[in-house]
Amino acid sequence: MRADAQRNYDRLLEEARQAFIVRGTDVALEDIARHAGVGIGTLYRHFPDRYTLMNAVFEKELDALTQHAHELITADDPAEALTKWLRRVAVHSASYRGLSAAIMENGGLRMPSCKTRLRTAGGALLWRAQEAGAIRPDAQIGDLLKLTHAMVLAAEKNPEERGLFDRLMDLALDGLRTRGKTQEGREGTPEERGAVPAAADERENAGAATG
């Protein structure tokens, strides 16, 4: 790529990143080109459509998420490591309004590089947690990412419900953990496994009181 073309490419990426954060991923591409000091034709030569531009921006941003996954891969608690990483993914998604919807749309047809990097980084954390017996063996990283993004979307659409994302995430992660074992790995008591009706009733009553 020629030096001037590289400069245009870099400016477009930076302007797109700022625009996506401030105005959302549905911002007019003409506005991004204008702020970058180039014509819309130049933008389309580098990025044939909106999703190509989004993918390029998020590919660059995913460096931090990938690095975070590498740092967590040796954590003492593999399940907690996976949890921390998914929460970081959620923060990343919330910073870019529309990212969650874009990643969830049309399976793997849109933003393929972004999906691949996320699944590779998170997949290693999930595999380690499953090998440790802490996370259900039927869990798949693609499903966990879609679930995380769905919860981000729910929180975005209900801003008046403070703490909604954290509550949903806690429920989802509790469902991922293997049943019948405590966090220390020993076999749980019937109450811990939820096998005693009285214990289940107490939890239900507590939930009704706080809901």
Rank of each mutant, 00 (worst) to 15 (best):
E204A: 13
T182E: 11
G188P: 09
H68D: 13
K115S: 05
M151W: 07
P190I: 03
R50I: 00
G142S: 13
R97M: 04
P190T: 07
R193Y: 02
R119S: 05
E184S: 11
A75Q: 12
R167H: 05
Q6E: 15
E15H: 11
E15A: 13
L53Y: 00
C114Q: 06
R17H: 01
E191G: 10
G207C: 09
D166R: 14
L65Y: 01
K84Q: 12
A28H: 11
S100V: 02
R162N: 08
A172H: 14
L72D: 12
K146N: 13
V196Q: 15
A121H: 04
A150T: 11
R110Y: 08
Q6H: 13
Q183W: 11
E30W: 00
I135T: 12
T52W: 01
Y96G: 00
Y44M: 03
G39K: 11
S95N: 15
V38N: 13
D76I: 08
F165W: 02
A75V: 05
R50V: 01
W85P: 06
M104F: 00
P78H: 05
M1D: 11
E105D: 11
G175C: 07
E160N: 13
M104Q: 15
L99R: 00
T66M: 09
P197C: 05
G175A: 06
G163T: 03
A36C: 06
R186L: 08
G180I: 00
